[in-house]
């Protein structure tokens, strides 16, 4: 085995929160369930719609109208009946975020907006667990791993959110980025390999080209900055 019985046992004892059961959440959840991550809490407030099915591969035509988390839990349990899947149908906001995460070992950012991403970033920093970031648009995607107080956080890298829009997406792009995120989670839980910390992975599916941008912690970061009183103001 790649990481032995001990590694498999470690995965089994781990808890991961997947925020979002859509395009990114689908591949991340499938791979983590198949790998044997013992407890997966999947959180989403949406119902399955037909327009989701080109990319949200956890759901199929028969699931239209169901809660995404219920559809997700059903598939994940059938892939791996030995894991525990929590289907949490709720909105992630300032009131619910911390309790949703609870005593998890890490949070996967599979959201579709930066407002919630920033909130997850704050929770990860507060309770000192990693945030595995991914985002997509069309054929383009990005991913990074955030270890609070050790590597650049989401606000260090993206101090300002890109504009809200309806995102055109081809299903293969969240497939690529979700697989990167799931890989990061597994390596982190097993304490192996080199994490995608202080690096922003950029995928251009149109050109079949991957790049990385080196990023650093911002001492004035409003979320994790070390220079208190000199932090940038939140907008």
């Amino acid at each position: 085995m790649l990481f032995g019985e001990e590694g498999q046992e470690r995965l089994k004892k781990s808890t991961i929160v997947i925020a979002g059961a859509g395009g990114l959440g689908s591949p991340v959840a499938l791979y983590l369930a198949a790998a044997g991550v013992g407890t997966i809490k999947i959180v989403d407030n949406d119902l399955v719609e037909q327009s989701n099915l080109n990319r949200q591969i956890l759901h199929n035509d028969r699931d239209i109208g169901k809660k995404k988390v219920d559809s997700a839990a059903e598939k994940l349990q059938s892939i791996n009946p030995d894991i525990s899947v929590w289907a949490i149908h709720t909105t992630i906001d300032t009131i619910t975020a911390t309790s949703l995460v609870g005593n998890a070992d890490g949070i996967v950012d599979a959201m579709d907006n930066f407002a919630t991403r920033y909130l997850l970033n704050d929770v990860a920093i507060t309770i000192k667990i990693p945030l595995f970031h991914g985002a997509i648009r069309g054929f383009y995607g990005q991913a990074t791993t955030i270890i609070p107080k050790k590597s650049a956080c989401l606000r260090c890298i993206f101090p300002k959110a890109p504009p809200q829009e309806v995102f055109p997406v081809i299903g293969v792009t969240p497939g690529v980025i979700g697989a990167v995120q799931a890989t990061e989670v597994i390596k982190y839980l097993l304490n192996i390999g080199g994490l995608l910390t202080n690096r922003l992975f950029i995928w251009d599916g149109m050109q079949a080209s991957a790049e990385e941008i080196h990023v650093e912690r911002d001492p004035h970061c409003e979320a994790c900055g070390t220079k208190k009183g000199m932090r940038r103001k939140r907008t």
């Binding site: 979002g20 859509g22 907006n113 985002a135 648009r137 890109p162 969240p174 950029i202």
Partner: peptide, 10 residues
């Protein structure tokens, strides 16, 4: 020089 727009979808 690299000019990069973050993406936000999921």
């Amino acid at each position: 020089i690299a000019v990069f727009p973050p993406v936000a979808g999921g």
